[in-house]
Design a protein around this nucleic acid. Structure first.
Lengths: 199, 199
DNA sequence: CTCGCCTTTTTACGTTGTAAATTTATTACG
DNA sequence: CGTAATAAATTTACAACGTAAAAAGGCGAG
């Protein structure tokens, strides 16, 4: 028991707890993420996490922040590794859907959960913005190339809403399993056609 | 206190409890819907509801069923009162968004909540199917008129996902407040263009 | 009237998030 | 080198949750 907690001690503990929380979240669902369960997995008493997080809400915010950052990593990776504007757009879209189905609980935590005071978690806001940046940047490319026409912000939101809608419906069990990806591709195709300069 | 409970007594109590649950849901959010709170509002003891519902899950299923039925009412009303295929399509879309923002908690309960054993609630399934029927029927009209081309099931899902995506993002606070409706209209326009027979 | 049954309430248990008090371990100082 | 101060961790405790089990209350049949 170190007398005083160095900054990295705190950061370490926070990170370890986040990993455990994400694992529990993914494996047993949100109801399994309890203070006592987290503490047990870490081998500490149930009150120890309160030295490192304000409350459970704070833990959730940290998990969501991590989620957004990993999501942003995936989108940025897809954007960077594809060649050509169209390919970049397609790759980012695919990466979006892939991430959502590889980490469905994280995705839900990120997008379904309307955390009441998100503005109190600046890291969370920053991570969410980072994830969105890639999505809007490929839209700008497409407009610059004359493939799409319109306001990049709004068109970006259209593709986002299309992806989120398809993913959300499948995650909620409203679509036949496995159909969201194809649906998303077809929506992107139709949207792209409908947003062509001449249309 | 009637000695034996007639079928309508049971139905009455179930309905009254549902109303209270929906009110609590809408006014104080999902966390305020507790057995004790429901009982208090009804003026009965916390265990009384268990005579009329298997458990809390069962209550939630009933609330969602009501939600889907009122949602279906709204969509069917819009479909019936508009003149012309295009107008019907637009009216149903508007009604979708309107319902979602008039009853955001109900909407979330209906579509975000992945209730584990939905198949055990046949009324719920029926109500959900009824709500979807209107959405697919106007798409069939549009295809029959030669305004759209493609598989009606899939095109129906596209418009659904577009609406759900726009609504879901705004309900989750991811879009500037009040922008989902316009976004949805523009998505519908772009999708319709992209799905025209010649495209 | 009384017995038995159906409805309702009371009581109780295990679990949750977390506040408050207590214990433990380390460091600074006489 | 003890010893007091202090930060970290644990223990204990509480209110609220869903609900099982036991107790109580009220009506119809004999």
């Amino acid at each position: 028991m170190p007398r005083v907690l160095s900054e990295s001690d705190v950061a370490d503990f926070r990170e370890r707890l986040c990993q455990v929380a994400e694992k529990l979240f993914a494996e047993k669902g949100p109801d399994a993420v309890t203070m006592r369960q987290l503490a047990a997995e870490l081998g500490v008493s149930p009150m120890t996490p309160y030295r490192y997080f304000a409350d459970k809400e704070d833990i959730l915010a940290a998990v969501r922040t991590n989620g957004f950052n990993r999501f942003a990593d995936a989108l940025e990776g897809a954007y960077a590794s594809a060649r050509g504007v169209r390919a970049k757009g397609a790759a980012v879209g695919e990466a979006y859907v892939t991430f959502a189905f590889e980490h469905p609980q994280t995705y839900k935590a990120m997008f379904d959960l309307n955390q009441p005071h998100e503005e109190n978690y600046p890291d969370l806001v920053a991570a969410a913005l980072r994830a969105r940046a890639t999505q809007t940047s490929y839209v700008k490319d497409l407009i610059a190339e004359g493939i799409l026409a319109g306001d990049p912000e709004e068109i970006g939101r259209m593709f986002w809403a299309a992806a989120h809608g398809a993913v959300g419906l499948e995650l909620a069990g409203k679509l036949p399993a496995g159909t969201a990806r194809g649906l998303h591709r077809h929506m992107n195709g139709a949207l792209a056609k409908g947003l062509r300069p001449g249309a």
